[in-house]
Design a protein around this nucleic acid. Structure first.
Length: 463
RNA sequence: GCCGACAUAGCUUAGUUGGUGGAGCGGUGGACUGUUAAUCCACAGGUCGCAGGUUCGAGUCCUGCUGUCGGCGCCA
């Protein structure tokens, strides 16, 4: 939803200053909202579409707040101006002065142009390559062409809408944690050891040594847990998985949190809390944008208002077996099984208490039955799959050494991590949330690539 | 790592049994005084991904390579 008060200095009565206007005084969103009716405005933006005759020329101008049609008449603007506007190809940048006229026509408001200049022209030898036909969905996915021209595709309405939704998701996650007295905390991106299996690490040369790009903030967050007690971050994580699916990136944005003294159940409450908070924030601030993306708002409302059921791993196995799926106890649940399991779900579900053998060493074994670990995954419905993974951490020195050794993981890179247990270890836990996955799911997008400006996967690092 | 598809103009694509590659959009020129993906007329634009092979002749058949897309495993 366009909020005039964010930028519209006239509508909300904010005092103007050079700092407020930042090179631009009028916003198209304000024009179409009726804030400047019958007044002269100076619009700065880009040519979205243009058409007309040799006497009258229509230019639909876009800025970050909307579109408006500007009408230039040859006998009003003069020969030179008229010709320069006629020659302004799509995506030329323009500065247009004119009077806002409310009309009954399609866009509701028009600007009667009195003068105009083309700020940054587009050369007809190289017209803007993203055309209507380029955006035709040949098979549901984005074409190679659009991915190659991502830097230009960003300014199309679909991507712009997605970027606004994404910004709101990021803001909502920050506000959720900050409103609950979490401290934002940053971990290094160059690290020496893995969090997950070693095969998915990106190795980088580091002054004659080897370093890796971080897969998670978690281990370093645990180091600060005794200092801050409640902490969170949103930062990129890197995984060298050659995954070719609609939910994987090699560089993704990871919202992670860690809480001292917390149980698995309490951590899950925050997982549910943050996802529901994001969904309700989107409903409040981005309902128009969600509809533009083709998202049914009643679905998002359901995700914001419902409680998320919790199911133990054993229960999930029973359900799968009753559906005739071949699955053995102890197996991790892969996506094909997640998909069958979640096909009947209408809201996200937590899956808890996985077998110890299926999870890495930092998961705490359940004291009531050490075959299991105190962990949880949050599975989004509609086939979107896992968006959160978390749980309680192994927190005593004895137990962490036992878990590391049984896994065959070398102790060396984790000495700092073990130290956290040697000096006043306490129960604690946390989770990691895939922010791009959350954006994909809540906006109803087909592919995670749609939810991030420059997606990275195993085959693409450009542009 | 595995499986499966695809590659023709700037873009989206048609191309029959192997016989001199078409269209729409975009661009250029022109017509048109209210258009909404404007319309109408004309023009330009192609090493049919690359390399071999079969054939009198290959966009089309065969082999290899490259690239891309989709899916699996793994995960957020």
């Amino acid at each position: 939803m366009y909020m005039p008060s964010n930028r519209g200095f006239i509508t909300d009565g904010l005092r103007r200053s050079i700092g407020d206007t930042m090179g631009k005084e009028y916003w198209i969103g304000d024009v179409t909202a009726g804030s400047h009716d019958a007044k002269e405005v100076v619009l700065k933006g880009w040519v979205h579409r243009a058409r007309g005759s040799n006497k009258i020329w229509f230019i639909v101008v876009r800025d970050s707040t909307g579109h408006v049609q500007c009408v230039a008449k040859r006998d009003v603007v003069g020969e030179e101006c008229f010709e320069s506007l006629r020659n302004a190809l799509i995506e030329s940048s323009v500065e247009i002065t004119g009077v806002v006229e409310p009309t009954d026509r399609e866009h509701g408001h028009e600007v009667q142009v009195s003068s105009a200049t083309v700020v940054g022209p587009v050369n007809p030898d190289r017209p803007f390559p993203i055309t209507e036909s380029a955006m035709e969905d040949s098979d549901g996915g984005e074409t190679e062409f659009l991915l190659d021209n991502r830097h230009l595709y960003l300014r199309t309405s679909r991507m712009t809408t997605m970027l606004k939704i994404r910004s709101t998701v990021f803001g909502a996650i920050h506000s959720y944690f900050r409103d609950r007295d979490f401290t934002e905390y940053q971990a290094p991106n160059f690290v020496a050891g893995a969090v997950e299996g070693g095969s998915t690490l990106f190795e980088v040369p580091y002054f004659g040594k080897k370093a890796y790009l971080t897969q998670s903030w978690q281990l370093y967050a645990e180091a600060a847990m005794p200092a801050l007690e409640r902490l969170y971050t949103m930062a990129p994580s890197f995984r060298a998985e050659k995954s070719r699916t609609r939910r994987h990136l090699t560089e993704f944005w990871h919202a992670e949190m860690e809480v001292a003294w917390a149980s698995n159940d309490e951590v899950m409450e925050h997982g549910e809390g943050v996802v529901r908070h994001v969904a309700s924030t989107l409903l409040e601030e981005m309902s128009e944008e969600l509809e533009e993306m083709g998202r049914d708002l009643s679905m998002v409302a359901r995700f914001a208002e419902s409680e998320y059921p919790r199911m133990r791993y054993d229960e999930a196995i029973e359900i799968l077996q009753s559906k005739g799926v071949e699955v053995e106890w102890g197996q991790d649940l892969d996506y094909s099984k997640e998909k069958i399991l979640t096909s009947d779900f209408e809201v996200p579900h937590f899956l808890t208490h996985y077998p110890r053998v299926a999870k890495p060493f930092y998961h705490r074994p359940d004291p009531e039955d050490p075959k299991y670990v105190l962990c949880h995954d949050l599975l989004a419905p509609e086939g979107y799959g896992e968006i959160i993974g978390g749980g309680e951490r192994t927190w005593s020195e004895e137990e962490i050494l036992e878990r590391i050794d049984e896994e065959g993981t070398p102790r060396d890179p984790y000495e700092f991590y073990i130290d956290i247990r040697r000096y006043g270890g306490v129960p604690h836990g946390g989770f990691g949330l895939g922010v791009d996955r959350l954006c994909t799911w809540l906006s109803g997008a087909e592919h995670i690539r749609e939810a991030i400006p420059f997606p990275r996967d195993s085959r693409r690092v450009t542009p």
